[in-house]
Amino acid sequence: MSGIDKSWHDMGGEAAGPIERTEHDYALWEKRVDALYTIASGKGIFTVDALRRVLEEMGPEAFETMSYYERWVEAINRNLIAAGVYSPAELATKMAEVEARGDEYAAASLDRSDG
């Protein structure tokens, strides 16, 4: 595919190594990220195309260094800020509050609705 000017995420036809047939059961936090996207897009706050635009802008380094739902939560965050749902300062304050609750996900997330 040499000579074709295309974005990094357009991977079809590129050379690559063997397929690592990894899979895992999605963790609760990953499902929640997916749910946040489904709900926000369902309410018309941003579209799947807007999600993908940010994922593509994040570039190949993010693809190599962050997990799938890490990239998604970052892309959802940027879209929600762009839509004016909350500000970067509000997010920073809330994240500090969350991190102060505990060192593990279950402690930090309160999990009020999950028993």
Partner: peptide
């Protein structure tokens, strides 16, 4: 990123 999910 987990903290970000919780915060969002």
């Amino acid at each position: 990123f987990q903290a970000m999910e919780i915060a969002i």
